[in-house]
Simulated scan of single mutants.
Amino acid sequence: MFDYKKSVFLSVSCLALFSSIPAEAGTSLNSIGIGHASHTSDTLDSSKNKFDYSFVKWTNVNINDWGNVTQFLEFDNPFKTDKNQQGIDGVTTLKHWARLNYNISDTKFHLWLQNYYNANEVIVEDNFYYGVGVHGGNPKSGLWQVNAGLHHVMGKNPWGQSLNGYAGGAFSAQYFKPFVYKNQKLQFIAYTEAFLPNDRYKEQSFAGSALTWDGLEKDSIGYLATATLNWRMSQNISTSLTYKNQSDYGGYSADTNHIFMYGINFHF
């Protein structure tokens, strides 16, 4: 049985969130990274509010006897050097993502709490997920976890609409696999996150669905899926390439959207 006291996913990718370093309980792991996000032309056509941008990111993981806490703080377009699709300075966005897994005794199950805060000159949103999860594997052969629960949201969209309350169901899953290729340490990380919005959320949505809510089906699902290849160049330096696919999520349209992110990270 995989024990979270001995190992945890360390978030060092651009948004995939999870690579891994074995660590003893009572350990705090940190990284600072810079990177760039690029969209395909079809994605920019369908999501007119999006643009390519650079980012700066801090990540922290704390491992404890009772479980672990993972978080990142990210600034997108921090110096307003990136232009939006209208040719003017793009917005600067602050993102904070945090997840707490609390072990349920010595079982494979844990309590799952997750929060994502996103703010810029246009919107403010906070998404809180809570539920239960199951985890397994080991750091050598691969680690995985699956979480499911409910979604509470509050915020305000560009049109002055506000939402505060229960917004539907939520789900997340991740898988980490280390391997060696030509004596180089590599890691593959897959992550997905989804929510099933209720009617109230779809009618008052302030991120993603607000762009196309008239076309949303009753059982539509907003999702994010990522695949990351991470190369640990040295003890303190890593680089990563991430592919993101998201729909009705994070301000993207209901179409299938493709984003590529590259980052380099310093670990301490």
Rank of each mutant, 00 (worst) to 15 (best):
H258L: 05
T226E: 09
H36C: 03
G131F: 10
I63F: 11
T93I: 07
E24R: 05
F195W: 11
D45G: 03
S41T: 05
G26R: 05
P197Y: 04
L224K: 11
S7T: 15
F171Q: 09
W58H: 14
Y223G: 12
Q204D: 09
G155M: 08
Y191V: 10
N230K: 03
T40A: 08
S238Q: 07
G222V: 01
K156V: 12
Y181M: 10
I259L: 13
P178K: 02
I259V: 10
S253H: 03
N198L: 05
H39V: 00
V122W: 03
P139Q: 06
H110C: 10
H36P: 01
F206M: 14
H258I: 00
L17F: 08
Y262F: 07
I189K: 05
F176L: 15
Q71R: 14
A227Y: 03
Y116V: 10
V122T: 12
K182L: 05
H151I: 04
Q145G: 12
K156F: 02
A167Q: 01
Y252S: 08
F55G: 09
N30P: 03
S28D: 10
E74W: 00
T228N: 15
G67C: 04
T92Q: 13
D3S: 07
F128N: 15
D126C: 02
V69E: 15
A225W: 02
K6A: 12
I237M: 12
V153N: 09
A207P: 04
G222W: 01
Y201Q: 05
G250T: 06
T59I: 04
T70L: 15
Y102V: 13
Q86T: 11
V69K: 08
S220M: 04
N164T: 06
F188A: 15
F188P: 09
G137H: 03
R99K: 11
D82V: 06
T43W: 00
N265V: 04
L17I: 14
D199Y: 01
L111M: 14
T40V: 03
D255K: 11
D42R: 06
Y129T: 11
N257K: 03
Q204A: 13
S54A: 13
N64I: 02
K48C: 01
S234P: 03
R99L: 14
L216A: 05
A227H: 11
L224M: 10
L94K: 10
E217R: 07
F79D: 08
S240R: 03
G263S: 14
